[in-house]
Write a protein that binds this DNA or RNA. Structure first.
Lengths: 153, 153
DNA sequence: AAGGGGTGCTTCGAATTCCGAAGCACTGCC
DNA sequence: GGCAGTGCTTCGGAATTCGAAGCACCCCTT
């Protein structure tokens, strides 16, 4: 598969020709699964397959690609026993995601307070369309959720 | 373009069949440009074109799609004058990104301390490949950066 | 009136990213 | 030997993103 450049400060990234660190971070974190991997590796070091399973059976090729990027960006590294783990910088990043996690709880609570209005407003047409259901491919993917209980705080 | 369902708590999302709020948030934020839009709208309400320019000329079709999703997820709304703005919940999300921003600075500082080692290690081959330069399409895209100074703290 | 510049979006085909199945090499156990 | 697990790789297809062009509308100038 292709390997688009890993977003890193100082490099041109999507959103900044000068590689401004904030934009590099937003670009890095805006790649599918990156946040999730950081999250899971923050719990404990994991091997490739176990990490894949913790990420709900995500595609191995993308996982490999993301691990490469995270290593290049110095957020992750491989231990002698072959497990992947976060670097101190990576753990720092995960800590910084803590308020986001807290926010997601407030988000859920907010939507639970007004569930019938969540799909109203300017996005009504889009919401109706998206409620037609996930694609069959998604369903098959999600049915492969091996964990009955998600890890997390 | 296709409209995959907007990740929201309680809905099946990539990474969780039960729509666990953390996973919904990670899925939502893991879409290209979402974090950036939240960031830019946190500064001030913006019209569509101006917001597009603030996001370095990102594709209008994706911007429109993201705005729909953010509205559906109750993070953004349209004002009477047509400008887009974050809801209180959206501003809350942006605040929660503050520590991530601080982290990105530490990230840049860390990499600046050891720039020659950033591309070494297990990801050497990948880094070499990615250093071949962004695709020509990226260069053309980045050359359209209209802002000389990025907004931000 | 026409023309030009701006606005908010939409459409469409191309490019890129992600996906999932299959595969390979290796290890350890029975 | 077979089987199950490991860490990855490959490949073609699906999904997402992209960017150019377009449309309708508005406002201002000539």
């Amino acid at each position: 598969m292709n390997a688009s450049p890993t977003p890193m400060p100082g490099r041109p990234v999507r959103g900044s020709t000068t590689g401004r660190s904030l934009m590099a971070a937003l670009d890095l974190f805006g790649r599918r699964w990156t946040l999730r991997i950081i999250w899971e590796l923050g719990n404990e070091p994991l091997g490739f397959r176990l990490l894949q399973r913790r990420c709900d059976g995500m595609s191995s090729s993308v996982l490999q690609q993301r691990l490469r990027e995270l290593q290049e960006a110095r957020l992750a590294e491989v231990l002698r026993d072959g497990n992947y783990t976060l670097t101190p910088l990576g753990h720092d990043a995960r800590e910084s995601l803590g308020p986001v996690i807290e926010w997601s709880r407030r988000w859920a609570a907010e939507l639970a307070d007004a569930p019938s209005t969540a799909a109203e407003g300017a996005a009504t047409a889009s919401a109706t369309g998206s409620d037609s259901g996930p694609r069959a491919g998604h369903l098959r993917f999600l049915a492969r959720n091996h964990r009955t209980g998600d890890h997390g705080p």
